[in-house]
Amino acid sequence: MGLVTLILLSSSLAASSCGKEEGGEVPMPSGNREMQIEVEDRSDMDSLLQELDRTMESVSPEDFSDSQLGESELGL
């Protein structure tokens, strides 16, 4: 029972991904691809952290920036 499979379903990351794919064993979440990370020991936590970082970076506070409610956006 030393195995837990962590599945990240990355169905909606394509539109927002930052394009920071760096290669390696864990693929960049994109499109409708399904990605699996298997944590068997503590060294796998690094891969997991990297993937979590990428996922968190795929969304930005700028998606809710003031400029989206600017006068030009509103056609004023």
Binding site: V4, L6, I7, L8, L9, S10, S11, S12, L13, A15, S16, I37, V39, M45, L48, L52, T55, M56, S58, V59, D63, F64, Q68, L69, E73, L74
Partner: peptide, 29 residues
């Protein structure tokens, strides 16, 4: 603008839930 924001909000919510769910699985392991 509302449609665009709704799309962004959904994307954020799904992303956060996905990360939380993964961390919860790690926690249980």
């Amino acid at each position: 603008i509302i449609a665009r924001f709704n799309n962004n909000q959904q994307r954020h919510q799904e992303t956060y839930e996905r990360v939380r769910s993964t961390v919860e699985e790690l926690l249980e392991w």
